[in-house]
Design a binder for these strands. Structure first.
Length: 427
RNA sequence: GGAAGAGUCGCAUAGUGGUCGAGUGCGCUCGCUUGGAAAGCGAGUUUGGUGCAAGCCAACGCAGGUUCAAAUCCUGUCUCUUCCGCCA
């Protein structure tokens, strides 16, 4: 969420910044509502002051045993006015919130204007594998080698799901262990949150009410506000960990990482080129999350990007890092880099990590603050990044590491987690 | 799932309708004192809104209600504790 004061004081500038992400807004209405709101507050507070004064008078009169009928009648009239004013104020506040909630974050200065077409590759690691034989796609490989059971996945749950079996499950778990060890060594704190979150958490993270269609909500016969939902990413949990808190400056930065499956409806996102496990209702992900003072967020952004890159480098996979243009960043984010692994059968690169700086946008909605050196409370900055999601890594490993005989080598970094398996072969 | 009790300023507590945004103790900060420290003494110690400012307004888990007036009374709800039941 953006700061109403910023919009009030500098509407032109905010407008220009949002135009970078092809968001064109007119602030006339919000500013009018805001003026209305402040007028109303002043009027109502004056009434409250009057009421407080009168209340003291009545108390005194009663104590002295004198008659206070006149004052009480007056109080009644003021009380009605206050109630009316409050009701009106609530309406106006709701409207202002509606406007503000619809606005995306302001891109950082270095983020280029425009949409996807303006995305720019900033780093490349490794080369496309030669694959100078009749190579196979990951669905074929995973099925042949008995790593993934797509059919039984459909039997258990339906489309867009799968079952990891045997060495496939081991490979999945090996990846997660490899990531976890890396983050622990880097001093990030390991968090295992509940997967079912409440409405307030979704609301603070900006998922509700806007994206309620995109997540799996339980107890659907009840009021959605009393329901729980399956988290679409651990980011939601990690942001809410410190919701409504004031964090001591000496505790910053806070660096977390978390393992959770991510549950997403992916409504309407099916694409025929996305076979196998590229897009599912449930996938495993390790998420990094940082809370820090505003001045530090650029530094931690770089750190998160490097962490994700190092993990891929350790696996020896060919990938690229892309700086997203303003219009391609998700709404809450001021800057995003995607790390994309090469998947031959997809004829290109697929996202395995998305690293973002949310600046104070998430913190404002979730009300997460710290005190600056003058003792003033200020919002802090939040950053997040996958480190990493596995569901596109297994396809990348299978395809990039496959041999002419249909077997697949396991990246050396994973050997210690694979219980002696170094090559995946058909039995 | 059932029953009882509890939720107040970092912590512990006081406060059962009006002068309570809230007392006390601990902790913490600053000052005095001291060779230095402890003790002692003094001052301060939640957050948000609004206003150029002085100030004013709001908040006692949360949401409603009663009342001229609510930390205090009523209803709902959430969380915690204890007991009972059930269960991996």
């Amino acid at each position: 969420m953006l700061d109403i004061n910023l919009i009030r004081n500098n509407p032109q500038w905010v407008q220009e910044q949002l135009a970078k992400r092809d968001c064109h807004v007119d602030f006339t209405t919000v500013i009018e509502l805001d003026n209305l709101r402040r007028n109303l507050i002043q009027r109502n507070e004056a009434r409250r002051q009057k009421r407080n004064e009168n209340s003291a008078i009545i108390a005194k009169l009663k104590k002295e045993g004198k008659d206070a009928t006149k004052q009480i009648a007056e109080m009644k009239a003021i009380g009605d006015k206050i109630a009316n004013g409050d009701a009106e104020l609530t309406k106006i506040n709701d409207k202002i919130f509606e406007h503000l909630a619809a606005l995306p974050n302001i891109p950082l200065p270095e983020v280029v204007a425009g949409g996807k077409e303006k995305n720019r590759v900033v780093t490349t690691f490794g080369k496309k594998p030669a694959l100078d034989f009749e190579w196979k796609d990951h669905v074929t490989l995973a099925t042949n080698l008995g790593l993934i059971d797509y059919e039984r996945g459909a039997k258990l749950s339906g489309a867009k799901t799968w079952v990891y079996t045997g060495a496939g499950a081991m490979l999945e778990w090996a990846l997660l262990n490899y990531f976890i060890d890396f983050h622990i060594a880097n001093g990030y704190k390991f968090i295992l949150p509940p997967h079912l979150l409440n409405w307030e958490s979704g609301y603070a993270a900006g998922e509700f009410p806007k994206f309620v269609e995109d997540v799996f909500v339980t107890d659907f016969n009840k009021d959605p506000k009393k329901s729980k939902f399956l988290l679409p990413t651990a980011e939601t949990a990690l942001l809410n960990l410190h919701r409504d808190e004031i964090i001591n400056q000496n505790q910053l930065p806070i660096k977390y990482f978390s393992y959770t499956p991510c549950y997403r409806k992916e409504a309407g996102s099916y694409r025929t080129d996305e076979r196998g496990m590229i897009r599912g209702y449930q996938f495993n992900k390790i998420e990094m999350f940082v809370y820090c003072a505003a001045a530090q967020s650029p530094q931690f952004f770089s750190e998160l990007v490097r962490n994700a890159e190092k993990l891929l480098e350790g696996l020896g996979l060919h990938f690229q890092t892309t700086a997203l243009a303003a219009g391609d960043c998700s709404a809450s984010m001021a800057k995003t880099y995607d790390i994309e692994v090469f998947i031959p059968s997809m004829k290109g690169y697929k996202e395995v990590s998305s690293v973002s700086n949310a600046t104070d946008y998430q913190a404002r909605r979730a009300n997460i603050r710290t005190k600056d050196t003058d003792g003033k409370t200020v919002l802090l900055h939040t950053l997040n990044g996958s480190g990493l999601a596995t569901s596109r890594l297994i396809p990348a490993i299978l395809e990039q590491y496959q041999n002419a005989d249909g077997s697949v080598n396991i990246p050396a970094a994973l050997h210690k987690y694979m219980h002696g398996i170094t090559v995946l072969k058909k039995k």
